[in-house]
């Protein structure tokens, strides 16, 4: 599925045209205006445009979406699960960081 003459098309950085398996993409869908894109899953596609089309068919067939982002899975860096303690535990005893001491007016919408 190589596209050597179509330079304008975004290619997955790790894509090797002769690989039998297309590269993996992470899919983010925004369901309502004003809400952030949410991770909904992943799929395989040869390039970014195809990934968006595939995401449209796989993840928005019941009217879930207004906007789709696709990101090559290989481009995502993740935190180290082993470092859970030092990364997150220090936040546990700092309740003053939660904005829970304020009343949110009704009708303010998603915050």
């Amino acid at each position: 599925m190589s596209t050597p003459t179509s330079g304008s098309r975004a290619e997955a950085p790790a894509a090797k045209p002769t690989d039998a398996e297309w590269p993996l993409w992470e899919i983010f869908v925004r369901s309502h205006t004003g809400i952030a894109h949410r991770h909904v899953g992943s799929l395989h596609a040869p390039d970014a445009e195809s990934a968006i089309r595939n995401a449209r068919d796989v993840y928005t067939r019941r009217g879930e979406g207004l906007s789709i982002w696709v990101v090559p899975t290989s481009e995502i860096s993740a935190s180290d699960p082993e470092a859970k303690g030092p990364l997150y535990d220090p936040a546990n005893d700092k309740p003053y960081r939660h904005p829970s001491f304020y009343d949110i007016p009704e009708g303010a919408g998603p915050m």
């Binding site: 599925m1 190589s2 596209t3 050597p4 179509s6 002769t18 040869p46 195809s50 089309r53």
Partner: peptide, 13 residues
């Protein structure tokens, strides 16, 4: 979709 597939497969392997 069909146009993109025709282009990808024609200009493919």
């Amino acid at each position: 979709r069909s146009r993109a597939t025709v282009v990808a497969l024609g200009d493919g392997t």
